[in-house]
Amino acid sequence: MSKSRASEPRGPSQRQLRVGELIRRSLSELLTRGDLHEPDLAAVSITVGEVRVTPDLKRATCFVLPLGGGDEQGVLDALRRAKPEIRHQLARSMKLKHAPDLKFEIDRSFDRMDETRRLLSDERVRRDVAAVEARRESGDGDEDDA
């Protein structure tokens, strides 16, 4: 018999992805319009990179980053203070039965991308990748070497 799929780790469901994207777009629009009564958010542009929603859709983690890498902690504090108002406005703009509880975190994906680019541009890594590709082309390498 085949191994049970229930024990395998799964990614988010289509519903989680759709709701996360809906929240991301709505939150981006809300922050762009500047309709919040939090003065510390009025003068800063914030990028909402991703929103991850729990399977029960009750909690959403919003990954944000102030443009230009400004005062990250100050932006997080301001978003946390404005959370009730943000949640209320999101609930009005989206057609969801319940507005999820929001959690804000700094989006580090840009930092990880920069670090990956730096590593891939390293001469030793480029030399190793070229050697693996040369072995594959000559038929000497194993397909799973990468």
Score class of each variant (00 low, 15 high):
Asp114Gly: 11
Lys103Thr: 13
Leu30Ala: 02
Thr116Glu: 06
Glu50Ile: 02
Leu27Ala: 08
Leu90Ile: 02
Arg24Phe: 01
Phe110Lys: 10
Leu120Val: 02
Arg24Met: 03
Ser121Met: 05
Pro66Met: 02
Leu27His: 11
Arg112Thr: 04
Asp56Lys: 09
Met94Trp: 02
Asp111Arg: 11
Ser7Trp: 15
Pro100His: 04
Ala131Pro: 09
Ser93Cys: 04
Glu105Met: 09
Leu119His: 15
Arg124Glu: 13
Ala134Ile: 00
Asp128Tyr: 05
Arg135Ala: 00
Arg18Cys: 01
Arg108Ile: 06
Arg5His: 08
Gln14Asp: 13
Gln89Met: 06
Ser138Glu: 03
Arg124Asp: 11
Val125Arg: 08
Ser7His: 13
Ser28Gln: 12
Lys97Ala: 09
Arg80Ile: 04
Leu17Glu: 11
Ala130Lys: 12
Gln14Asn: 12
Pro9Phe: 08
Glu105Gln: 15
Ser4Leu: 09
Ala78Ile: 01
Arg118Ala: 08
Asp40Phe: 04
Asp56Cys: 04
Leu119Thr: 15
Val51Ala: 06
Glu133Thr: 04
Pro100Gly: 01
Ala131Thr: 10
Leu65Trp: 13
Arg126Leu: 06
Ala91Asn: 11
Asp145Glu: 14
Arg118Gln: 09
Val129Gln: 05
Arg117Val: 08
Ala60Met: 06
Leu30Ile: 03
Asp144Tyr: 13
Gly74Gln: 08
Pro12Ile: 02
Ala146Cys: 03
Arg5Cys: 04
Lys95Asp: 13
Pro66Cys: 02
His37Asp: 14
Ala43Asp: 14
Asp56Ala: 01
Val44Asp: 01
Asp111Glu: 14
Asp114Ser: 06
Glu8His: 15
His98Trp: 13
Arg25His: 12
Asp107Trp: 07
Gln16Arg: 08
Cys62Val: 11
Arg136Phe: 04
Glu8Pro: 07
Leu27Phe: 10
Leu30Gly: 08
Glu137Arg: 08
Asp114Cys: 05
Asp101Leu: 05
Phe104Gly: 03
Arg80Val: 00
Gly34Ile: 05
Lys83His: 09
Arg126Pro: 00
Asp40Pro: 00
Leu120Gln: 15
Arg118His: 12
Ala43Phe: 00
Ser4Val: 10
Arg92Ile: 05
Gly69Gln: 12
Gln89Glu: 11
Val129Glu: 01
Arg108Ser: 07
Phe104Pro: 05
Pro12Thr: 06
Gly74Glu: 05
Arg10Ser: 13
Leu96Pro: 14
Leu17Thr: 15
Asp71Trp: 07
Leu79His: 03
Ser13Tyr: 10
Leu57Asp: 06
Pro100Ala: 05
Arg52Gln: 15
Arg117Asp: 12
Asp101Tyr: 06
Gln14Phe: 13
Met94Cys: 12
Leu27Arg: 10
Phe63Leu: 15
Gly11Ala: 09
Gln89Leu: 08
Arg33Leu: 06
Ala6Tyr: 13
Thr47Asp: 12
Met113Tyr: 11
Arg59Met: 06
Glu137Trp: 01
Val48Lys: 09
